[in-house]
Design a protein around this nucleic acid. Structure first.
Ligand SMILES: Nc1nc2c(ncn2[C@H]2C[C@H](O)[C@@H](COP(=O)(O)OP(=O)(O)OP(=O)(O)O)O2)c(=O)[nH]1
Ligand SMILES: [Mg+2]
Ligand SMILES: [Mg+2]
Ligand SMILES: [Zn+2]
Length: 564
DNA sequence: GCCGTTTTCGGCCCGACTGTTTTCAGTCG
């Protein structure tokens, strides 16, 4: 609706309210009806009467009258036009009203034939840019996994970190904020020799194309289709530039309004106090910490900068002390060669130990996961004997007998009680019947939550980032059940999953649900995915006390539901 | 459409770049 209103020339601030609402739902990662029902929605900043009424209307009837009216007014294809870079709502409206153009295809034809030049404000260059832009839309790669983006920028970090001109270097943008997917990678560097830094960056990256090349900004397009932007600034500007380019946009806007109210001005070059003659004087800050301090705020970690309440919390001194990598003591949910993993139990143990973990919870697949070599009962027993033997040896890491147990379509588990009782820890997850409707899927998972042998719910929504939505499930209801029964939820650190999503993690914490940070590693090398889960946990405002596997081995065991 | 330690009405972040046009609107980050 925001885009439709924008094309129709609606007030930009009204449009912003609709965009804000869409952002709050995390582009539907969080369901609107669920947030309305739980009362969370009305508490959100920027959500007022009119928004609530529309969500209510949608919840009750599946439709919004105002939306239906907009659809009747505006041809469907119009929204596609906005995907063209440099082609916004004003141009879209102009071609639609004056030339009747209402789709990408029609716009392309008109640009080819020169018909666009009939319009005031449209000349040859605009036309050429539109054609080039349409080509870009066609081969648009969209977004990238956080982990893939990190991998792509490695050579830039290598080339610049040790470079003599480099003063400071940081990853910025959505990558620094730990968004699960990113549109591009943003870097900020302060340099004593901008030209040399630009050269080193380009040479290090070996891009497919250099799309912008100046002494303050370089953009490259990598073969994978991802853009990498780097800002090169003088050393004194670095903290302001870093804050600006870290974003998010909404956080920046909120910070700048705050500065305004304090009779200051904030941009990427500085924070300025404004004298009564209107004269601006920079408030010198040597770090982001000092910028926040100058605005009366505690330091806000990048992961929290989404304008989701972090500024208000920083003002009150109530920001969480976010969980850190080193605080996670247990490597949880690893597969071994018993099921579809690559390495042996002791090999996984040694790798976990080398990473600094003090215990390892082995969780192979259960028997119904036949495609993944799920364990028959005799294999379970064999693995238990091996684990007992390893623990008796005492190799410097403790092994726990876990399982990733399938939740069968009827909500029952994959072994009988006698077997389930023998595990130290059961992670229950869905690997089949993804297409159950929401009530059935929700009932199925809640049945597992009620099972006294279930300690953790694994990858609760089953989403695969950029590939497949989660199954239809009322996450709020499942979390409420978890809270009631003392069951934890997993953040699965597989870069394709990061499931439970951080937006829900924040909610889980509010509901009093504890969280397990899991790697779901299928080989030694991916136990580090635990730290991807840490990233999502931080983004979900979690502290050490919210995370079960930040407890020591004994305390972890005691804290599990089965031992409550 | 939302909001209130100057306000219930009148504001709403700020700057760079581009293309078109004699002074700026649109788009983007
Ligand atoms: N003040 C201000 N800053 C902005 C605005 N738009 C973007 N920025 C800043 C904050 C962003 O994090 C940063 C980089 O822009 P990007 O378009 O790359 O967005 P970001 O990296 O946050 O997300 P994405 O790349 O889409 O995954 O620039 C804006 O409208 N105002
Ligand atoms: Mg970005
Ligand atoms: Mg960018
Ligand atoms: Zn699984």
């Amino acid at each position: 609706m925001a885009e439709m209103l924008e094309i129709l020339g609606e007030n930009a601030f009204r449009v912003r309210a609709y965009e804000n609402l869409s952002r709050i739902f995390g582009n539907l990662e969080r369901g609107a009806p669920e947030m309305l029902a739980s009362g969370e929605l009305e508490k959100q900043k920027g959500v007022g009467e009119s928004s609530i009424a529309k969500v209510k209307e949608y919840t009750e009837s599946g439709k919004i009258r105002a939306h239906e009216e907009l659809k009747a007014k505006l041809p469907e294809g119009m929204l596609d036009l906005l995907k063209i870079p440099g082609f916004g709502p004003k141009k879209a409206r102009a071609v639609w009203e004056n030339l009747g153009i209402a789709s990408l295809h029609e716009l392309e034809e008109a640009a080819r034939s020169g018909r666009l030049e009939e319009l005031p404000g449209f000349a040859q260059k605009t036309e050429a840019n539109i054609l080039a832009g349409i080509e870009l839309v066609k081969k648009n790669k969209g977004r990238f996994l956080w982990a893939d983006a990190m991998h792509i920028i490695e050579p830039a970090l290598k080339a610049l970190a040790g470079h003599p001109a480099t003063v400071k270097l940081e990853i910025a943008g959505s990558l620094r904020r730990r968004k699960e997917t990113v549109k591009d990678a943003d870097l900020v560097v302060s340099s004593e020799n901008p030209a040399a830094t630009a050269d080193a960056f380009i040479e290090g990256m070996s891009p497919e194309r250099v799309t912008a090349r100046g002494d303050t900004k370089v953009s490259v397009l990598m073969p994978a289709g991802m853009a990498v932007d780097i800002r090169i600034v003088p050393a004194e500007d670095f903290p302001y530039a870093l804050h600006h380019f870290t974003g998010s946009k909404e956080h920046n806007v909120a910070m700048r309004s705050r500065a305004q109210k304090l009779n200051r001005k904030m941009n990427e070059y500085g924070l300025f106090s404004i004298g009564r003659d209107g004269e601006e004087k920079r408030v010198e800050c040597g770090s982001e910490q000092e910028i926040f301090k100058a605005l009366g705020l505690d330091y806000i970690p990048p992961e929290l900068r989404e304008d989701m309440g972090e500024i208000e919390a920083a003002e009150r001194g109530e920001l969480p002390s976010l969980i850190e990598d080193a605080e996670v003591l247990g490597a949880v949910h690893v597969h071994t060669e018993y099921s579809d993993g690559h390495d042996t139990v002791p090999e996984m143990g040694a790798a976990a130990k080398a990473l600094g973990f003090s215990y390892l919870v082995v969780c192979d697949h259960s028997r119904s996961a036949y495609y993944a070599g799920g364990l028959q009962v005799r294999d379970v027993k064999r693995q238990w004997r091996e684990i007992d033997a390893l623990n008796a040896e005492g190799g410097g890491i403790r092994f726990f007998k876990g399982i990733e147990c399938d939740i069968l379509p009827d909500g029952s588990l994959d072994y009988d009680e006698a077997v389930l009782a023998g595990f130290d820890c059961v992670i229950a997850s869905v690997h089949s019947a993804f297409t159950l409707d929401e009530p059935a899927q929700t009932a199925r998972i809640i049945a597992a939550v009620r099972n006294r042998y279930v300690d953790v719910i694994g990858h609760l929504t089953g989403r695969l980032l950029l590939q497949r939505d989660g199954y239809a499930v009322d996450v709020e209801a499942v979390l409420a059940a978890c809270a009631e029964h003392g069951v934890a939820v997993e953040i699965n650190g597989n870069p394709n999953r990061l499931d439970l999503d951080w937006r829900w993690v924040k909610r889980a914490k509010e509901l009093g649900v504890r969280v397990v940070l899991a790697s779901d590693a299928h080989m030694k090398g991916t136990i580090v995915h635990t730290f991807a889960a840490v990233g999502a946990a931080r983004k979900g405002w979690l502290e050490k006390k919210d995370v079960l596997n930040a407890l020591s081995a004994d305390s972890f065991l005691r804290a599990l539901r089965r031992n409550a």
